[in-house]
Design a protein around this nucleic acid. Sequence first.
DNA 1: TAGATTCGTGTAACCCGTTACATATATCCT
DNA 2: AGGATATATGTAACGGGTTACACGAATCTA
Lengths: 331, 331
Amino acid sequence: MTTIRDVAEYAQVSVATVSRVLNKKGYVQSATKEKVEKAINDLDYKPNDVARSLFKGKSKMIALLVPDITNPFFPELARAVEDLCNQNSYTFILCNTDNSYEKEATYLNSLQQKSIDGMIIVSDTISPDYIGKIKVPIVLLDRVFEKGDYSYVKVNNREGACNATNYLKEIGCKKIAHIAGPSSVLNAKDRMKGYIDAVAYESWFSNDLIITSDYDMKLQASTENIKALLQKHPDVDGIFAANDSIAIRTMKVAEEMKIKIPDDLSIIGFDGISLGEITSPSLTTMAQPIYEMGRKAASMIMDEINDPSLPKRMEKLEVNFMKRQSTRKKG
Amino acid sequence: MTTIRDVAEYAQVSVATVSRVLNKKGYVQSATKEKVEKAINDLDYKPNDVARSLFKGKSKMIALLVPDITNPFFPELARAVEDLCNQNSYTFILCNTDNSYEKEATYLNSLQQKSIDGMIIVSDTISPDYIGKIKVPIVLLDRVFEKGDYSYVKVNNREGACNATNYLKEIGCKKIAHIAGPSSVLNAKDRMKGYIDAVAYESWFSNDLIITSDYDMKLQASTENIKALLQKHPDVDGIFAANDSIAIRTMKVAEEMKIKIPDDLSIIGFDGISLGEITSPSLTTMAQPIYEMGRKAASMIMDEINDPSLPKRMEKLEVNFMKRQSTRKKG
DNA sequence: TAGATTCGTGTAACCCGTTACATATATCCT
DNA sequence: AGGATATATGTAACGGGTTACACGAATCTA
């Protein structure tokens, strides 16, 4: 490995001068500059970022912690963050936490030991206290705590859920069920509230129109619950699913039960993952601006890195209704 | 930040002794060890990995370069690599190259400047010459060059494709088309060869039963080609698609054309992405052991990092036939 | 018991950029 | 002309672990 000292020697100048040329900082005579640039070229010198990081205490690295990248919501988010990292010369680190407290704690420690510059965290398990101890800039994404002073990016889950449910009412659904996400997931609660906002005063509403499912598409455990719901309430003609994965699984179950979508049953999801476009029928959904959320979080982190005294920012983005084939107006 | 010198002072020993305790290396009296451990605890000392990396020239970081994490093939791969990184205390870096030569070159440079320990690369654009210049251990994944001495992990694309096509013949398909991947993608060529292996001597075979499409599911450009194929050859009753994304898109097109799957047309894909399970009908496919491929690549990289003198390893894994609903036996 | 080993610990150089500070010359201002 | 300022470059300390080497004490060997 060629070092800055090799370059200095080759160019017959001091290391300080080479450093000045490299960083375009301080005074360097143009003739000297050329000598140094020639040396850099001749020796194919690339500065060692680790040494740089050690001195600066910054690593030009940003980490994204998600529960599981194979969950179809996260690749687009990761892509957004990575794009911004790449554009701003940051290196992008990805961590799968499986919503495990231990894994999160391990990651948080090892990332700090690597002088990570900032972290974007999607987590239901992490506690505000724990986050408070971390000196590195943090932006919470999608799932946030109620209290505490943290930067975050999220969407208006409750209103979005309410609107989604109202849409089913508008197209003439007479009995609307809700398949909620796990109670441990923060945004799932808000979405359930939004559903209740929309149906609480309907004469047909009863609590057993709400069942709970897992957010993960692969787990087939809750398929039975969905089936039971549809059997118990054969007159349900609209379902608001807490996310697209659940909605897609529900479509599968309905199909097996010979329930026609959207003719017999309208289904609306939440998230706007690209999967929803390729199912048959394609999925009507309340889409989160996933890429934009990732972009914004990354951009906020970088702002905070550049100026740690910046006040925390809370960004609430709007969901977008996407009409597709899994819902249809009655009559 | 507490440093090793703070710990040394607090424990009344030298930094060397603290380092020995930390790394469990060299002689330390048990009483001294306890003193040091107490100091580490009292001061909540965490060693600085950057300083460590600088001295060692190793960073305990591994990078995965993929074209695009939002392509559904890659999240599972990334997850596998990340899992192994996590288990072995490596930090996982993810890079989206978009198959752009410039982006790849930029990543390769900046990763080396960060003393990355190893890279796993999925790329069609990268050249063997370029790779040859890199001193860091590299494992190529899924797409590999014909010549040169590189470690890689791939599947038997050609045989798998041939078997997939033969399966269509076995269930009674009388005319089988192939929707190939872009010619720039290395594995797409092999899969096309496999298809040809299976059909070259069939009386019905003609070159215009092969069309080319994009691997990416989102691009709708090639939808027209698929439609044209099905219109031109209404007697095609079997399609082998070069990957699952194409197969799923083909199912969509067929559905729009009122062609029933699998009754009128059997479709088989390649890859085994989890998406294929949730479509209606679900997709019969030649599944690659995606997680296993990622695992193996990660494990090979770590072996090479631990012993750079190790010979290159070429791993060819087997694809697995997954019978689902998009194919059906005739008659 | 002398000499060789093993054990235990410390000093200081090293990894490689960055930059504060020192020094020196050139340019500017009154 | 003489002090202030801008320009140009070098020296050496620094960031925080790691480890080669040195030294002393304890244990072993013959």
